[in-house]
């Protein structure tokens, strides 16, 4: 089943065309990566899919729900992790997870928080105030928050941005394990090596357009490249 269906998506900010009619599909349970440099339009696409921004034209469907008409229903099945996101600084890690869980089903509330704590893996620091966390700890807490709800679709914007190698690897493992449980993952990154490791399929996005799409291995063979970075360079130079 198709989890995300994007057709001719256009998003303008005034006179600026941020997204210029892109189309792609993501299958259920798949890890799909939107790859491109800063300002290419990745975050805009993710925000639209997350119901944060309105579209100018085209259509976006999440599990057959239309983002324009069924935003409330979509919010119940997705989880969005913005780039450089933070948490409420006066709360502890545990109470932050509890605050988020309160928006969902009451019956599974405790289990949800427990799952979040396990994913975040912060040991005793989970009961410390968020403003005492390092960047890596904060990101782990937020990944825990994003995945604890068992979303049908997890939208992760630069999930490892600004993290050291150890923390980044931890998060990649968590994302991979989550996809194995059936959650569809849509992520964006400008770290081409990361997506090569994580994503089953990728779309290369440049200046608001998808310039190439496919499995990383297939694309590397097609462009006779050693890695996705080389693929991207060759594609945009064409």
């Amino acid at each position: 089943m198709v989890a995300i269906e994007v057709k001719n998506l256009v998003k303008n900010f005034g006179k600026i065309e941020a997204v210029k009619g892109i189309s792609f599909d993501v299958n259920e349970g798949e890890i799909f990566g939107l790859i491109g440099p800063n300002g290419a339009g990745k975050t805009t696409v993710l925000r639209i899919i997350s119901t944060l921004l309105k579209i100018n034209s085209g259509s976006v469907k999440i599990m057959n729900y239309d983002v324009d008409k069924d935003a409330d229903k979509i919010r119940k099945i997705i989880s969005y992790l913005p780039e450089d996101a933070g948490a409420y600084k006066n709360l502890t890690g545990r109470s932050y997870l509890q605050f988020i869980a309160n928006f969902f089903n009451d019956k599974q509330n405790k289990q949800m928080v427990q799952r979040g704590i396990e994913i975040a893996d912060l040991d005793l620091r989970i009961d410390d105030r968020v403003d005492t966390y390092s960047k890596g700890m904060m990101r782990r807490l937020l990944v825990g928050r994003a995945l604890m709800t068992n979303p049908k679709l997890a939208i992760l914007d630069e999930p490892t941005s600004g993290l050291d190698v150890i923390n980044a690897q931890e998060i990649r493992k968590i994302v991979k394990n989550t996809a194995r449980t059936g959650t569809t993952v849509l992520l964006s990154s400008h770290n081409m090596l990361e997506v090569e490791y994580l994503c089953e399929r990728i779309a290369l996005i440049s200046e608001g357009k998808i310039v190439e799409e496919g499995k990383p291995k297939v694309l590397m063979d097609k462009y006779n490249a050693n890695n996705i970075e080389e693929v991207f360079t060759k594609v945009v130079q064409q």
Binding site: L52, K76, P82, E83, G86, K89, I100, F103
Partner: peptide
């Protein structure tokens, strides 16, 4: 806005 908690809040199932 500064802590980007608003973006998270707006994608949660709350009106």
């Amino acid at each position: 806005k500064e802590n980007k908690t608003l973006e998270t809040l707006l994608t949660l199932p709350v009106k």
